[in-house]
Design a protein around this nucleic acid. Structure first.
Lengths: 217, 217
DNA sequence: ATGTCTTTGTGAACGCGTGCACAAAGATGG
DNA sequence: CCATCTTTGTGCACGCGTTCACAAAGACAT
């Protein structure tokens, strides 16, 4: 039986082994003392807890460049997501296949949601269309929305919204970039602006809280 | 002189007013006691600190659907970003305008970087091309990279990389969705898996740390 | 000028998450 | 069957960030 110790996993992931063990125990995963965790069982448990073993039908609304990019994105299937339908308001798009899936017209949105049992919707429309589309998705039964449009959506309680702003990540990079450039010139300046806490080591490449919480809209 | 108090801003942003004041003082912004903060001055200070007043030329490498979507994205200009060039490996793309900017061939990558003084690069290529492109960008002087390709890039010290995985946000939604569905059935089950901490209130729509730190690759 | 009232800026306390350290558990070998 | 060794699971302490609470500062009225 192939096993891994929390120590090995922690080293590979670059985290503390105690934290890792605590997280696992918290998920109800049981390892064997003196041996470690059964790899296969562990993978299954985590996959199940994260919802990777389920089939999540999603619809993408707004098949412009971004919508098409999402439809073509290969990483969804392996994570348990299935693109159930593509929806666009442009009648000229209707029937045209994108990533092998024919685009359907917005008129049929409600029917598509119901027929496919969709509970997760992706909005990749222009800003102006986002809120109306969102309202219709929610009314049709969607309870989770991933929003790429540059608008804050208002939804009733019980509906989750996550907004992806492609420029925020760029802004974070620019912020660090500015600090890089400013550091050389900082020595010898007059009472300049107090230094902002630099992110020290941590070579992770993910979005996380290494930026000030308060940002202008 | 139009002003705002930390209390007003905090209420609008949904954060604690003391934290907001501390952040402002930390940025060197000075308010007036008994009055509040001068709006115009505050906006300027924050913009400057965040790098919004600077002009950041960026290049986008890989002009597929995603690259085109990024090139067309309107939110960049207002945040201080300027798309200096679009680069693609496909000779058929060369010269073709996308979002009003002619696509250039990968062969000229180094020259483009130098001529435009680019320090931020965006990679929207397929996974296989990402690392080589990254290496060339870094060699040409780029010190910040925004990576949309599903690969972890390795870069020398001093270079910042941020990876955007479009499926992670979906996965987070699916995770919450699963918990919604599981809660009703949870009452009366046998000794089931210990409940994972649900995110309580906080109606923010941004990416933040409300998910377990440890996730499988 | 003096007093009052508002709001800032910040020292101090609180709470939470992370990491340490160790006892309990089980495997393995003699 | 007992001893030893490895690794888990977790109580406890430390440290950091958030929040509280208040003194200092300035505006404004009298």
């Amino acid at each position: 039986m192939p096993t891994v110790s929390s120590e090995e996993l922690a080293a590979a992931a670059g985290v503390n082994s105690a934290k890792l063990r605590k997280d696992f125990s918290y998920l109800g995963s049981y390892g064997t003392r003196g041996v470690g965790y059964d790899v296969e069982y562990l993978v299954y448990q985590i996959s199940r807890e994260l919802g990777l073993t389920q089939d999540w039908p999603v619809v993408i609304v707004g098949i412009g460049n971004l919508g098409a990019a999402l439809a073509n994105y290969g990483g969804f299937a392996s994570r348990g997501f299935r693109v159930a339908a593509l929806i666009d308001a442009d009648p000229a798009m209707a029937g045209k296949p994108v990533a092998g899936i024919p685009v359907q017209h917005t008129d049929d949105l409600e029917k598509i949601i119901e027929d496919n049992g969709v509970s997760i919707g992706v909005i990749a429309t222009p800003a102006g269309a986002a809120q109306p589309v969102c309202d219709r998705l929610v009314a049709a039964g969607v309870t989770s929305i991933l929003n790429f449009a540059p608008t804050v959506l208002s939804v009733p309680d019980g509906v989750d919204v996550r907004k992806v702003d492609l420029s925020i990540e760029l802004q974070i990079l620019a912020f660090h970039e500015q600090r890089k450039a400013g550091e050389e010139a900082a020595a010898g300046t007059d009472g300049g602006a107090p230094a902002v806490a630099a992110r020290s080591e941590s070579a992770d490449q993910g979005p996380d809280g290494d930026v000030p919480a308060v940002m202008p809209a």
